[in-house]
């Protein structure tokens, strides 16, 4: 068993792919820096290029420097699974932030959400008093006043 194992390893390793990989990484780094600092393709493209090159570089390091290209399927899943999982988190996070009312970047989302949020404030007078009575006399006055201020806008 262990004899096979040695043979595998013996003719497996050469430095050559790693040298090419290093040169490719140098090239990509230069490209991303040059494109961001000098070429400037405008609003979405610059960011997409920078991120695309970063993902390519990371994949090269994982596949070649870290020998994942020759590794078992299980190791491949481990190597990329973490990235996939955190990407899912980013997706949910950004999804939430972009659809929040008042987010600066996407004004288009605002009106319908705002309506839903602001509606009760306009009717605040009635709602406040009813709630106040339900809970008890002492609190009722306070509630009414708070809502009075809100309505005054």
């Amino acid at each position: 068993m262990s004899d096979n194992h040695h043979d595998d390893e013996h003719h497996e390793h050469s430095l050559k792919p790693h040298i090419f990989n290093l040169l490719a990484l140098f090239g990509l780094t230069t490209l991303t820096w040059f494109s961001a600092a000098y070429l400037k393709f405008g609003e979405p493209w610059d960011n997409l290029i920078a991120l695309g090159i970063a993902i390519t570089k990371a994949s090269l390091v994982i596949l070649i420097f870290m020998h994942v290209k020759e590794a078992t399927r299980l190791v491949k899943v481990c190597a990329f699974g973490g990235f996939f999982w955190i990407f899912l988190f980013f997706a949910y996070l950004v999804g939430d932030v972009l659809t929040r009312p008042g987010t600066t970047t996407y004004e288009g989302w605002q009106p319908d959400v705002r309506k839903a949020v602001e509606a009760p404030i306009h009717h605040g007078h009635g709602g406040g008093h009813e709630g106040g009575h339900g809970h008890g006399e002492g609190h009722g006055a306070g509630h009414g006043e708070d809502h009075g201020h809100g309505g005054g806008h």
């Binding site: 780094t29 991303t32 820096w33 961001a36 600092a37 400037k40 405008g42 610059d46 960011n47 920078a50 991120l51 090159i53 970063a54 570089k57 990371a58 390091v61």
Partner: peptide, 13 residues
């Protein structure tokens, strides 16, 4: 490799 574009590059300098 990810920090470099995120911190230095994004935002067209």
């Amino acid at each position: 490799i990810f920090l470099f574009p995120f911190l230095y590059l994004l935002g067209a300098h």
